[in-house]
């Protein structure tokens, strides 16, 4: 645990060592606000809820989360510091987890800075605060799942741009697999079981049920197991591709 904590601390400091972190957070907070008010027509809905706010999170994460994770391993390999890091007495698993937790905390900080929205709906009306808390939990878990995919793509290349694009692409597939547009393409010919399987892998449907304020254990298990799976894959890829 101690090693994971030290690596997390270093990675988190690395995020804030450049203004990029602040720009990123500003974009995230600004966009969630703008989308909620202008695109989501927050006032016209005339409801004291954050449904319109959470609805845009998967789409924002699609582009922003791979940007957070893209440097985590690609940069280590490009600059050769991976050799320095992995010849210290830490295991690859500890290094992967340390980096993941740092990135997740970073997303958590960005997410926490959107809480003025929560305050706003409480001033304007009487929202279901339990549902909002679950929405935040769901959003945070989903960010973790996107990050795990992004960090895995980062472990596959030394080019951060490729890591970003590949990360966005895989996250996109996981997000889109739940919407009717995609499922419709399969429904005509594929067996129902396959369509259901594809749909069940969607982050979107899992997240939507969480933002409705329904804590279903299987949704939480789904998101955490997806995260675990991609982190496990990351450990394998880092080990396999160390020399390259």
């Amino acid at each position: 645990m101690r090693y994971i904590r030290i690596i997390t601390k270093r990675e988190l400091a690395a995020y804030f060592s450049t203004p990029v972190a602040f720009v990123f957070i500003a974009i995230f907070v600004g966009l969630t606000g703008a989308l909620t008010f202008y695109v989501g027509r927050f006032f016209d809905r005339d409801q004291a809820s954050l449904d319109g706010f959470f609805a845009y999170h998967p789409w924002l994460y699609l582009l922003l989360v791979p940007a957070v994770s893209m440097r985590l391993w690609a940069e280590e390999r490009k600059s050769g510091t991976i050799e320095q890091l992995l010849t210290l007495p830490v295991t690859t698993t500890q290094a992967v987890l340390g980096k993941f937790i740092a990135a997740w905390l970073f997303c958590g900080i960005a997410l926490a800075l959107t809480t003025p929205m929560w305050v706003t709906v409480n001033i304007l009306g009487e929202p279901d605060n339990g549902a909002i808390a679950i929405g935040y939990l769901g959003s945070f878990l989903m960010a973790g799942a996107y990050l795990a995919i992004g960090i895995c793509m980062s472990a596959l290349t030394r080019n951060q741009i490729i890591a970003f694009i590949a990360g966005s692409l895989v996250c996109f597939l996981f997000t889109m697999s739940g919407i009717d547009l995609v499922l419709g393409a399969f429904r005509d010919w594929a067996p129902v079981a396959l369509v259901e399987t594809i749909a069940s892998f969607s982050f979107l449907s899992r997240f939507q049920s969480l933002t409705r304020g329904v804590v279903e254990l299987r949704d939480i298990v789904f998101l955490t197991s997806i995260t675990t799976f991609w982190l496990f894959a990351t450990v394998l890829f880092v080990d396999a591709k160390k020399a390259g």
Binding site: R10, A14, S17, T18, S79, G80, T81, E83, Q84, T87
Partner: peptide
């Protein structure tokens, strides 16, 4: 390591 890579930032 060769080239003594270290975290530049």
């Amino acid at each position: 390591p060769e080239g003594s890579p270290s975290y530049d930032d």
